[in-house]
Design a protein around this nucleic acid. Structure first.
Length: 210
DNA sequence: ATAATGATTCGCT
DNA sequence: GCGAATCATTATG
């Protein structure tokens, strides 16, 4: 058994954990969890400090709005516990965690992490000389730092696929969390202002986008 | 086959 | 604060 810094027995989240029916609850529960990647023996990890919920077919900001099924969105229907990674603006690979049961295309976008392991590796991937807040504060740069690409889209979150999430016993009470509108979804009309972006209050690693 | 469009980031002002 | 970079995905003809 492995232990975290605070002596908590770390455990890998199983696919059962991701079957949460309420995607906003899933987004809140993912805060404090630890996302880990290990590609080519290079291990990196970080504590999730900012997420956004995307509510499947009912959410105009979600790629699966109106039950849209395309080769890209199909992985969101596979059931909780797989990764949905897609390319945004032709440059950025955005990492989402699929939640809820099979056939319900809910997903949580991971927007920021607090670096834990493999900081040297992340600095090199980002071509940054030293550790700064911007290393992992934002969905695009976080994927860059951890080596996540669209190659992982559809992969089950497990050690076998090189990308998974662990529980290190870090939890937050409701008043330690902050909720606000999601970023970059102005086109989603009446769904644009829903307070479905969640972050840890006063955490310096949260992305600065307003 | 072609054209429009981002769940963003970075550099400059 | 503002605008460009840049390309897979998608819808449409």
């Amino acid at each position: 058994m492995n232990f975290s810094k605070n002596n908590f027995p770390t455990k890998v989240l199983t696919s059962e954990w991701y079957q949460i029916q309420d995607v906003t609850l899933a987004a809140k529960r993912l805060l404090g969890k630890v996302v880990v990647t290990e590609f080519n023996g290079l291990r990196t990890s970080g504590i999730i400090v900012e997420t956004e919920a995307y509510n499947g077919i009912y959410d105009k900001a979600c790629h699966a709005f109106g039950n849209r099924r395309t080769p890209r969105t199909e992985v969101m229907y596979a059931g909780g516990g797989v990764a949905y990674v897609y390319l945004c603006y032709g440059i950025h690979h955005l990492f989402n965690v699929v939640t809820n049961r099979k056939g319900v295309p809910d997903a949580v976008l991971i927007r920021a992490i607090e670096p834990l392991e493999g900081i040297e590796i992340m600095l090199e991937r980002r071509k940054m000389p030293q550790l700064k807040r911007t290393l992992t504060s934002g969905p695009g740069v976080l994927s860059s730092a951890m080596g996540i690409s669209t190659c992982s889209s559809g992969a089950a979150l497990s050690k076998e696929s090189g990308i998974w999430i662990e529980d290190h016993g870090i939890t937050y009470s409701e008043n330690e969390l902050q909720a606000g509108p999601r970023i970059g979804v102005a086109y989603a009309e009446e769904h644009a202002l829903l307070p479905w972006r969640f972050s840890v209050k006063k955490n310096p690693w949260v992305s600065s986008s307003k």
